[in-house]
Design a protein around this nucleic acid. Structure first.
Lengths: 248, 248
DNA sequence: TCTCGCCACTTGTATAGACAACTTCGGCGG
DNA sequence: CCGCCGAAGTTGTCTATACAAGTGGCGAGA
């Protein structure tokens, strides 16, 4: 392996990153391939270990590599995931793909609303809300962490539900129609709990969908849906009323 | 400022990150506030400058901070929330935030539909379509690359428009109402053109919104809107018709 | 008054060395 | 054969040091 050219204008760690991505794209290191260790890269590229380490760490955060402490560095697998921004039952989605759906209720409790939750639900801080945390699996592999805060006024029996049988979707469907929904989609680094549940490495990003639903103009619940990996899709379709006179 | 507790299990740089985020959330450091320099943090928290630097750098990547070499570190302005799934004019959005909008038409031409474009627009492969590529800037920084394929039957004068004055939104709004829209949101690594236009690094991801709009049941246009993933959030709000009897 | 250059300060990068945490594997004793 | 232990190798973190690069302000000189 040729040494990195030092006279380049770009910083060294970036040259190392580009070099590695180039090798991956060129097919030298296929998916799942084990990369040379930091010490080997250090020798081969003529940079310090810290520089090689920074390059590898950032590539790991960006989803190119998977690193296992004590083991090694591997080219990340691509995992095609598909989820709908349209409101659907995740169990149906998984069933539609011919896979097995399983879920685990990690937490189901009443608690006082934190300021952030209170603002999201338009309640007073400290007001009682229901909180649930459910992990959904597809053929055994975690695909979604669903964290939900619910306005108790709309769902008094929420805590008595067995969400391993009935999904939250089915439950809310039975409560009556919702007026509106709001979605926020963003990429983020998950907290330790979500990271643990999804089995992600430290630094692996999540796509996060935050959905609030309204009934009679009041917020019923806010769900934070965390999906593993950066390679997944959200699709949605929306039909417009006649009052939508402007379109792009 | 109290020194970071060394006996904590979490790594030091993470404790520093948590400390800083805590101060921001507590309101000690409001938006735009200048933070202590790395050297001051080093002394105040009792960690090395490299550790403080790593914490600050990661928080900058995560959008909490804005760093200017030679100047200082500042609490980042709130990420602009784009109500993208709702169909709006990007110029209005930017104006609403009190910033300056500018755009550059990179390409505006007629071309034959590739198989992919033809399928998206429900046309025959090779049929003539209009193609436009526009870069939108907010206060000088690139915020969106808008690539669009248009069915010429609905927009015969498309190529004669000056989209630096009239946004594509305004143009389509003048053509009449649209029936429906479809959105696909995904994260992807941009191609070289989009990467160049948005000023992204080689491994930096984009948030990509693909929108198709219909009129009289036929596809009018397909837009691929690329946003720099680290700098933007996408929000959408959706109101439901009465036939939405099920909701989550 | 204006301009240029210097200086202090800030962030960005690079290195060497050290230790911690973890995995894998092989050997050794039961 | 099984299980435990330790060695070797790997990644993760932390430090100290040095220099590069960029910003802002201040003062000297035109």
């Amino acid at each position: 392996m040729a040494a990195i050219r030092r006279h380049e204008t770009a910083p060294l760690y970036r040259q190392v990153k580009d070099h590695i991505v180039g090798r991956i794209l060129a097919g030298d290191w296929p998916e799942g391939e084990r990369l040379p260790s930091e010490n080997e890269l250090t020798r081969a590229l003529g940079v310090s270990r810290m520089t090689a380490h920074r390059a590898l760490r950032e590539l790991s955060v960006e989803g190119w590599l998977t690193r296992v402490q004590g083991d090694g560095t591997y080219v990340a697998e691509v995992k095609p995931q598909s989820a709908l921004l349209e409101i659907r039952d995740i169990r149906d989605e998984i069933a539609e793909r011919g896979h097995a759906h399983a879920c685990r209720v990690v937490r189901l409790a009443r608690q006082g609303a934190t300021p952030e939750v209170a603002r999201a639900l338009s309640l007073a801080p400290g007001a009682p809300v229901f909180h649930s945390l459910v992990l959904h699996r597809e053929d055994g592999t975690p695909v979604q962490v669903e964290e939900r805060h619910v306005n108790p006024a709309f769902a008094p029996g929420y805590l008595d539900q067995d969400f391993t049988c009935t999904t939250t979707f089915e439950y809310f469907a039975g409560l009556g129609p919702m007026d509106a929904a709001e979605h926020v989609v963003e990429a983020e680094l998950p907290g330790p709990v979500v990271r643990e549940l999804l089995g992600l490495g430290p630094g692996e990003p999540c796509l996060l969908v935050i959905r609030r639903t309204w009934s009679n103009g009041l917020v019923v619940s806010r769900a934070r849906l965390s999906y593993p990996g950066s390679r997944y899709r959200i699709a949605g379709r929306q039909d417009y009323l006649s009052n939508m006179e402007t379109s792009q």
